[in-house]
């Protein structure tokens, strides 16, 4: 799935320190690499047993769109990795409602279960974080 697996980075140094990490995806897949490389960061973070939230908003919601078929552009399909998140206990996935609405999408168009939040609710959740990583 990725070149690095979380297991390679188990590190006793951080045992007991739990921070709230939020990863924010705002860019569509394939047009740029950010969403794909962000997946690797999110997966690695699981080795550190932090409190991880992943947000998809603006064109980042297309990372989760069902039915990616990348054969004709000869690029790796990034979407199966999101299905694997559950296996790594990455279960706090949030999508901003305004972003879905603006693109005519609904949660049924997405390939994994997510919690849909309004912009205001997302803002409140963002305010509770210790570290926010975006790309």
């Amino acid at each position: 799935m990725t070149d690095e697996t979380p297991e390679e980075f188990e590190d006793d140094e951080y045992v007991g320190v739990v921070k709230k990490f939020m990863f924010i995806n705002r860019k569509a897949p394939y047009g740029s690499i950010y969403g794909h490389e962000m997946q690797e960061t999110i997966l690695i973070s699981t080795a550190f047993e932090q409190d991880v939230s992943v947000v998809f908003m603006d064109d980042g919601v297309f990372l989760l769109k069902k039915g990616h078929d990348t054969a004709t552009i000869n690029m790796k399909n990034v979407s199966p990795a999101y299905r694997a998140f559950k296996g790594y206990d990455i279960e706090k996935l949030y999508v901003e409602r305004e972003s879905l609405d603006a693109r005519g999408l609904s949660p049924n168009d997405l390939l994994v279960p997510v919690e849909v939040l309004s912009a205001t609710e997302l803002g409140d959740l963002m305010e509770q974080q210790d570290i926010i990583i975006s790309a």
Binding site: E4, E8, F9, D11, E13, Y14, V17, K19, F21, E40, T41, I44, S45, A47, F48, Q50, D130, I131, I132, I133, S134, A135
Partner: peptide
Amino acid sequence: SGLGQLIGAGIDSDRLIVFG
């Protein structure tokens, strides 16, 4: 280094600032 060092930076720092 591995990407784990980015998460480690987040754990060890009071603030993480992203430039992109």
